[in-house]
């Protein structure tokens, strides 16, 4: 579902490259983990995939479409949950979701029904008409996810969907992701919680300094590195020094 090769990106005004020849691929219908320390280049990679940022060089293929020529098609098929809350803070959840849904071209009746269902599924029905800025951190994260689900994307990409949320919220989100995968969708997600990734992901890629370090099934990676957890693998491969 995703093939990245030799991706390079140096931001304007940045001294160091954010991606320096990243190559990796994930197969279809899996939950894939994109892992790496702070500043490894995870968000940059996702931004390139959804067309927000332009790569300097390299190629990206998503669900069979080349990014260079098929960005519009790709945008229709993927749903990206950004690392930051990307909603209008002064609008309510319903107002936000209505606008986003309409921009995706979803019919009014269908959209209303979907919004109702998802708000219920994510436990937000009581706050449906509350402004996003008055939401708690966990509620914001959940609303942020719903906004990327309305058009039923074939591939859901989530950038740290569980950052800063409580255990209940996290469990709910993870259960939803597994459910969404069972319905036949693919998922790529990033996280710093390696235990979570170890449980959830069929495949993980660890990147550092804008390059792929290792990729494989969590269990395989643990055996290969004679470790008992993904965290040990991670520390073994990326070192103990602080990033950023």
């Amino acid at each position: 579902m995703l093939e990245i090769s030799h991706l390079h990106k140096t931001y304007r005004n940045a001294a160091e490259p954010s991606l320096s020849g990243l190559s990796l691929s994930f197969g279809k219908n899996i939950i894939a983990g994109l892992l790496g320390p702070n500043g490894a280049g995870k968000t940059t990679t996702i931004s390139i995939i959804c067309g927000l940022v332009k790569a300097d060089s390299g190629s990206v293929k998503v669900l069979g479409y080349d990014l260079a020529t098929g960005l519009e098609e790709i945008k229709k098929l993927i749903g990206v949950v950004p690392q930051s809350i990307a909603l209008y803070p002064t609008l309510t959840a319903v107002e936000n979701l209505e606008y986003i849904g309409k921009l995706y071209g979803i019919g009014s009746r269908e959209l209303k029904e979907k919004i109702r269902l998802y708000l219920h599924a994510f436990g937000l029905e009581k706050s449906a008409h509350k402004a996003i800025r008055h939401y708690s951190g966990g509620m914001k994260r959940r609303a942020n996810i719903i906004a990327s689900l309305l058009h039923a994307p074939e591939l859901l990409i989530l950038d740290e969907p569980t950052a800063g949320v409580d255990v209940q919220s996290r469990n709910m989100i993870l259960a939803f992701l597994q459910d969404y995968h069972r319905q036949g969708h693919s998922i790529i997600y990033t996280s710093h919680l390696l235990e979570e990734a170890q449980q959830l992901c069929h495949e993980v890629a660890i990147i550092d300094h804008g390059q792929l370090v290792v990729k494989g099934k969590p269990s395989n990676l643990m055996t290969e590195n004679s470790a008992t957890s993904l965290e040990q693998v991670f520390l073994h491969l990326t070192g103990y020094s602080l990033r950023d």
Partner: peptide, 21 residues
């Protein structure tokens, strides 16, 4: 503000030209 709060980012990820928006 749209740029700062990320809502513009959300809009830009949606297919279709930005022109009608």
């Amino acid at each position: 503000r749209e740029r700062e709060d990320g809502s513009l980012m959300r809009i830009r990820m949606i297919p279709g030209s930005y022109f009608s928006i």
